[in-house]
Nucleic acid binder design. Structure first.
Length: 421
RNA sequence: GCGGUUGUGGUGUAACGGUAGCAUGCAAGACUGUGACUCUUGCAGACCGGGUUCAACUCCCGGCAUCCGCCCCA
């Protein structure tokens, strides 16, 4: 390929057909969020570096697309929608009636190595609910995820939602390890599914967890299965924090479709800012990375300078979702074809043809020849763009004030007078 | 940041250390008002740089890109 200008790494071009599909997916997601009473918002792609790095450390900073510095301003592209939406919430927090239920479908950027289902520029539906600490709010978020998936024809046979509660997990772990080790232990637990049991034990030993305690940790993360398995946790005799987390989890699960949900104490999401329930949606075959993820983040608003406000939310990325839908043959059906194609027979009738086209445009999408091609070629073109009907504008018919309208698929033709179009 | 894969017309592919072929696409034409079938003609290609060789698309090295994975995943 001898191309002078290449598309940047990890970004996508959407040609007409692909864009139609991407749009349909986005519209589908929007529709589901609206059905649950959420309202769409939008905001600039660019934020200050200060805001973007407020909730996270240096590693995150490395993945931000930072813009060239202009004057004193340090700016970068957003890497998620939770941050800017929370900023929007904080600045109007006082006047807004709670709960505030917002969503956005928009692109974002992360500077990282692209791979299947992961790009540098990608789009997510992000749904955020501020002001409610009730399990119904968490359950609503999970139910929106399910509604989104079902709106494409996916079922509980195709996908599952793994759910955990950060208070529960941390509460149980704090019985075993000190607070300063907690972060490391959670990190190791998060990748436990990917590594062998021996490696898992070695890693824990390395940070100074005794064998006896490792056995208990193993028991904890093996708690995986349908919501009924929460009974097993009670047997571990959880106290205070863990008990609170367990109750949050149980109460949330009361309001969600059990066919979709599996409890899995090993998912930790590595997300520092989650405070309660956390969940991730996966395809059942385990072929792809997470389709969606979310949870409760009760401290973020305060961290961003607002009044302490409970909040919960999730995001669904379109990249992985599109891969799964393609795989299952469930991509939304779309059409980019015009209703009519107007074909002037020769140059003399072009003015009349243009006139007819604009008249038809009051009700239909109408394409017209821009190449002054002969009629046969115009037919080929009309056919290839998928026009449903072709309007042949020629002198013979015009003499009687008529045009010939032909249905492309059937070849059925009729002469219609111009004023009746 | 690390590892692997692959780089031939717009797209999909073939062969070969010695003339790059096929399909599709695009354009024009085959009864000067009728397409989705057919035919003709045309357009259009070796990622970049270096090395080996009489000769490199082919072999070697480097870069770039690609896809896949690891790290990470807010």
């Amino acid at each position: 390929m001898n191309m002078q200008y290449q598309r940047i790494k990890g970004a996508e071009d959407f040609y007409p057909v692909e864009l139609a599909v991407e749009k349909a997916i986005g519209d589908n997601l929007r529709e589901q969020a609206r059905k649950f009473g959420f309202q769409e918002v939008n905001m600039p792609a660019i934020e200050t570096i200060k805001l973007l790095t407020a909730k996270s450390g240096e590693q995150v900073k490395e993945q931000i697309f930072v813009l060239e510095k202009k004057g004193a301003e340090e700016l970068g592209l957003r890497f998620d929608l939770t941050v800017p939406i929370t900023r929007m919430f904080v600045s109007k927090q006082k006047e807004l009636q709670k709960p505030v239920k917002w969503f956005a479908v928009a692109p974002m950027w992360r500077y990282e190595a692209p791979q299947a289902g992961r790009l540098r520029e990608f789009t997510q539906l992000s749904v955020e609910c501020f002001g409610s600490d009730k399990p119904e709010a968490d359950a609503t978020c999970i139910n929106i995820i399910i509604a989104c998936m079902e709106s494409f024809g996916l079922t509980s046979k195709d996908i599952k939602i793994k759910i955990n509660n950060k208070k529960l997990l941390e509460g149980l772990l704090l019985e075993l390890v000190s607070k300063d080790k907690l972060e490391d232990v959670v990190r190791i637990i998060d990748k436990s599914a990917k590594i062998s049991e021996i490696e898992f034990m070695q890693e824990l030993k390395k940070i100074g967890v005794s064998e006896q305690k490792i056995e208990v940790i193993k028991k904890i993360i093996k708690i995986q299965g349908p919501p009924s398995c929460l009974a097993n946790i009670r047997e571990l005799n959880p106290k205070e924090l863990a008990l609170q987390g367990l109750e949050e989890l149980e109460n949330t699960l009361k309001f969600v479709n059990k066919e979709y949900v599996v409890v899995d104490l090993s998912i930790a999401r590595g997300l520092a800012y989650y405070t309660g329930n956390v969940y991730e949606c996966f395809d059942r075959e385990g072929k792809y990375r997470a389709l969606a993820g979310g949870g409760r983040y009760d401290q973020l608003v305060e961290l961003f300078g607002g009044e302490a406000t409970p909040a919960t939310g999730f995001a669904i990325g379109t990249a992985t979702l599109t891969l799964l839908l393609k795989d299952k043959g469930l991509l939304p059906k779309t059409s980019i074809s015009p209703d009519y194609y107007v074909a002037p027979v020769d140059e003399k009738v072009i003015p009349k043809a243009m006139e007819i086209a604009s008249k038809l445009r009051q009700k239909f999408s109408v394409d017209i020849d821009l190449m002054r091609r002969k009629l046969a070629k115009q037919f080929e073109y009309a056919n290839s763009v998928g026009a449903k009907k072709i309007v042949i504008v020629g002198e013979k018919d015009l003499a009687e004030g008529k045009v010939t309208v032909r249905e492309l698929a059937t070849g059925k033709e009729e002469k219609i007078s111009v004023d009746k179009l």
